Amino acid sequence: MLQQMYPAPAHPYQYELNKDFHFAAAHYVPAEEAGKCRRMHGHTYYANVTVAGDALDSAGFLVNFATIKKLVHERFDHSVLNEDLESFSDEAPDRYPTTEVVARTICEIVQAYLDGTDNKPRCVQVFLRETPTSYCVYRPKPRVEERIG
């Protein structure tokens, strides 16, 4: 993978970790407005996941790089995204496997894992490139406790 600079999310944390990886997956977007994308087709997605936090774990990591890749790659690589009914749906537009929804889903998968760790880092950004000229950046809104504190 070529080294690439990504938009930097603003956050209050001391540490920021970025993991690049790619996965191949097919999908279709079940909406009339999707045009040609209504038909099954595939992409090699390039992802960058940004995790930030103030505390390191017992190994000195925010999270192990390999864990981030494993969470997403093993789930989506060489799959048909529409068949992952836990993440996507042909019935609800906010769950169609568009680049935006896939980026949000990656963030949710990573954050669910991070919530179970002792140091509780945050997934603050997912950059997902679908084609050489098209990508999406997803940044979850801060949790209420992060906005107050």
Rank of each mutant, 00 (worst) to 15 (best):
Q3S: 05
M5Y: 08
Y6W: 13
Y6E: 01
A8Y: 10
P9S: 13
H11L: 04
P12Y: 07
Q14W: 03
L17G: 00
L17M: 14
L17R: 00
L17H: 02
N18V: 12
K19C: 00
K19E: 00
F21Y: 13
F23A: 00
A25F: 05
H27V: 02
H27R: 12
E33L: 13
C37D: 11
C37T: 06
R38N: 12
R39N: 11
M40N: 15
M40P: 09
H41G: 10
H41E: 11
H41Y: 12
T44V: 11
Y46Q: 13
T50C: 08
T50D: 00
T50I: 06
G53A: 13
D54Q: 09
A55E: 15
S58N: 12
A59S: 14
G60R: 03
F61T: 05
L62C: 07
V63E: 05
N64I: 04
F65Q: 07
A66W: 01
T67A: 05
K70F: 01
K70I: 01
K70C: 01
V72L: 04
H73M: 00
H73N: 09
E74T: 15
R75Q: 09
D77W: 12
D77V: 03
S79M: 13
V80M: 05
L81M: 05
N82L: 06
L85I: 15
L85M: 11
S89G: 10
D90Q: 08
E91D: 14
P93D: 10
R95Q: 12
Y96V: 03
T98S: 10
T98D: 09
T99Q: 13
V101K: 01
A103E: 03
C107K: 04
E108N: 11
Q111M: 06
A112T: 10
A112S: 08
Y113W: 06
L114T: 06
D115A: 07
D115T: 04
D118Y: 02
N119F: 04
K120R: 07
K120P: 05
P121W: 03
C123H: 01
C123K: 04
C123Y: 02
Q125I: 05
L128P: 02
R129M: 06
E130N: 09
T131Y: 12
T133G: 12
S134G: 06
Y135W: 14
Y138W: 15
R139I: 10
P140G: 11
V144F: 14
V144G: 04
G149L: 14
